[in-house]
Design a protein around this nucleic acid. Structure first.
Lengths: 195, 195
DNA sequence: AGACTTTCTTAAGGTACCTTAAGATTTAAG
DNA sequence: CTTAAATCTTAAGGTACCTTAAGAAAGTCT
């Protein structure tokens, strides 16, 4: 039995909502498969993000670059996650961020217009995405709170226990960037923790 | 001509969407007026937030308290803003935050069930709140980015130019809390900037 | 007006985290 | 297998921001 990207997507939806047979094929028809090479950039600053994208295979990151050309990672994504610059997607304004494949990846994309059609045809899908947006808000708020009130070490330990799978497949300097610290300081911290 | 809280609310909606006469009275009927004394707490940790609330008069803050009993302000709100713990409201889970009146305030509240009824009756209202949620997400993301990549001084100057009205009516130690620094450090910074 | 509470400032000493620079290790590419 | 590229570590010196503690200033209540 061969695993098909779109079947995986349907299973993913069905963890939250239920879909009838005809709805399933409708959903499948609206998504397109896209392959990304390692380091390929999906969204550049200045682009308007017009698609929602689901990761079938691989690993991506969402980051922005500050005035001093330093990168700050906002989010990682791996299998079964959605990645996007939601800001740009929701407001239809140019992104200030990059979305880039960290590994060779396969994603499923749906255009905003196409998704809106789906919303009209399948209310459960609209519900699904509403819940996704809520979750995105919630996890962003957790991040804000953490950044304001915890030390780098606390944040690192939390990251490690929460995202062990991610920690093991992305370079450490990216984790440092996500945590808001330098790779050197992360390295020193790890040494200290190991003892 | 006396200013009525509910009329102000309707004007606020009409900056974004348009409402017919019958819709206006429908909306007005769903909101309740509530007065808050200075320092009165509207949402306690553990409460589930079941209302959206619009500030007609006054000033509120949304903060949470960490393990060391330090307060971290997430948001301020003044006239014509909405305040809430959106996290709790959206997920119907107990809040981890406080929402408190900084000044004597008058707010307009609508219960989630009541708002959902309104959504069925007036699609423009649903649209209004969808846009609000998007904006909340966007500004939260701006905050996360700022906190990760800017110094306290940069954040303070930005806060000052963006929220001059708020800066002038809340105590400085609360601004420090919002910026994620100590009041002592803010005081020192201000002295330095003034020169 | 006087007393209490809240808010703001000053200062000294400390810590978390940064910068720079170089070398060590691992991974990728021919 | 060899070399280059990417990643991780170490170390020294620096800076942003914190802690504690105390006093000054402003606001509130009777």
């Amino acid at each position: 039995m061969i695993e098909n990207p779109k079947d995986v997507l349907i299973l993913h939806f069905q963890e939250t909502i239920s879909l009838k047979e005809n709805e399933i094929s409708l959903v499948k028809n609206h998504f397109k498969i896209k392959e990304l090479k390692k380091k390929e950039i999906l969204i550049f600053p200045g682009d308007v993000s017009n698609h929602m994208q689901f990761i079938y295979k691989g690993c991506l990151r969402n980051y922005y670059m500050d005035q001093e050309a330093k990168e700050h990672i906002l989010q990682f994504g791996i299998e079964n996650w959605w990645v996007n610059d939601l800001y740009s997607y929701l407001t239809k304004t140019p992104s200030k961020q990059f979305v880039q494949a960290i590994e060779k990846s396969i994603i499923l994309q749906i255009h905003r217009d196409s998704l809106n059609e789906l919303f009209d045809q399948i209310p459960a899908i609209e519900r699904f995405f509403r819940l996704k947006f809520e979750k995105a808000y919630v996890s962003l708020q957790d991040r804000t709170i953490n950044t304001l009130s915890k030390t780098a070490e606390e944040r690192y330990l939390e990251f490690r226990s929460q995202y062990r799978d991610i920690e093991q497949r992305v370079p450490q300097y990216m984790i440092a960037s996500y945590l808001g610290i330098t790779p050197e300081f992360l390295s020193a911290m790890r040494k200290k923790i190991a003892k």
